[in-house]
C-alpha cells in the first residue's frame, strides 16, 4: 500500500508539473521569444531559447511612444472604469439587499434583464447611440457604457445578503441614515468582494478590443489591445517587437493578479456557485 502511494504520488506530481508547464508555456514562450534576434524569431528549426539574448525588441517597442502611451491611457481608463463600476454597482447592490421601496420588484427585473442581453446583439445600436450623443473619440465612450453591470451588482448583493442585520440595527437605532450605514458598515466589510469585482472590471476593460476599435480613431486614445492588433496588421514583419509588446501588455495585469491572488482564488468559492 505504501509503495503504491509513493508511485501514485510521483505520477500525480509529474502530471501536475506537466499541466502547470503547459499552462504557463505559451506565455513564457512569448516573453522569451521577445529576446531573440529579429531574424531568429520564427527561424527553422524551432528553438525555445534564443541563440543570443537580445533586449532590442523590448527597447524598440518601449521606444515607440505610441506603445507606452496606449499602455498608460488604457491603465488609467481601466482604473477609472473599475472604481466607477464598484461605486455604481455596490450602491445598487446595497439598495436591493437592504432597502424596501415601492418600485423594488420592477427595478430588480429591469436591471437583471440586462444580464441576458448579449453584447453582440446591441453592439451596432450602441454605436449609433454613442454616436448620436457625440461621444465618439472620447474617454467617456470607452469607460461609461460598461460601468453598470447587472452581473457585478448581483454578485455584490449576494455578499451583502450574508452580512448579519444585527450590525446595522444598532446604527439605525442611533439614528444613522441609510447612506451612512453603507459607507461606515458595508464598505469596510466589502474588501473581499470588491477585489474580485474590481479586478474583473479592470480586466474586462484592459482586454477589450472590439468596442475601442469601433469607437476610437484618435491615436491619443488608442487602447493597448487595439494598438497590438493594428501593429500586427500594419507592421507584420516586426514579429519580435510584436512578441515583446504582447508580453509587456500582460505585465500590469499579471502583477495585479499576483498581488491579489489569494483573495481572487479564495473568492471563487463565494462566487454564488453552490
Amino acid at each position: 500500500m505504501n509503495t503504491m502511494n509513493w508511485v501514485q504520488k510521483t505520477v500525480l506530481t509529474l502530471i501536475t508539473g506537466l499541466i502547470t508547464v503547459m499552462a504557463l508555456f505559451p506565455l513564457l514562450w512569448v516573453i522569451i521569444a521577445g529576446f531573440k534576434e529579429k531574424a531568429e524569431v520564427l527561424a527553422t528549426p524551432f528553438r525555445f531559447f534564443p541563440k543570443k539574448w537580445m533586449v532590442q525588441n523590448y527597447t524598440d517597442i518601449l521606444g515607440d511612444p505610441a506603445f507606452l502611451k496606449s499602455m498608460a491611457v488604457t491603465f488609467g481608463g481601466a482604473v477609472l472604469f473599475a472604481v466607477l463600476s464598484l461605486i455604481v454597482n455596490s450602491l445598487a447592490a446595497y439598495v436591493f439587499a437592504r432597502l424596501e421601496f415601492r418600485l423594488k420588484a420592477f427595478l430588480w427585473v429591469y436591471v437583471i434583464i440586462t444580464m441576458f442581453i448579449p453584447g453582440m446583439a446591441i453592439l451596432l445600436t450602441s454605436f449609433i447611440v454613442v454616436n448620436k450623443m457625440g461621444m465618439l473619440d472620447t474617454l467617456a465612450v470607452l469607460v461609461l457604457p460598461g460601468v453598470a453591470s447587472a452581473g457585478h451588482m448581483f454578485f455584490v448583493r449576494q455578499f451583502y445578503l450574508n452580512i448579519p442585520l444585527a450590525l446595522e440595527e444598532a446604527a439605525l437605532i442611533d439614528g444613522a441614515g441609510r447612506i451612512r450605514i453603507f459607507t461606515h458598515i458595508f464598505i469596510p466589510m466589502s474588501f473581499p468582494v470588491f477585489v474580485i469585482v474590481g479586478i474583473g472590471s479592470y480586466l474586462a476593460y484592459w482586454n477589450s478590443f472590439v468596442w475601442p476599435t469601433m469607437t476610437v480613431t484618435n491615436p491619443d486614445l488608442f487602447q493597448i489591445m487595439q494598438y497590438l492588433y493594428t501593429f500586427r496588421s500594419e507592421r507584420s514583419t516586426e514579429m519580435g517587437m510584436l512578441m515583446a509588446g504582447s508580453a509587456l501588455s500582460c505585465l500590469p495585469t499579471i502583477i495585479l493578479f499576483l498581488f491579489f491572488q489569494k483573495h481572487i482564488i479564495s473568492g471563487i468559492k463565494i462566487s454564488g456557485l453552490k
Partner: peptide, 18 residues
C-alpha cells in the same frame, strides 16, 4: 492554482498572437 489561473487573465488578442 496560481499558475493555471494566469492564462485566464490574458486577453483574447494576446492569446491569438501567441
Amino acid at each position: 492554482k496560481t499558475s493555471i489561473y494566469i492564462p485566464t487573465i490574458i486577453s483574447g488578442i494576446v492569446a491569438s498572437v501567441i
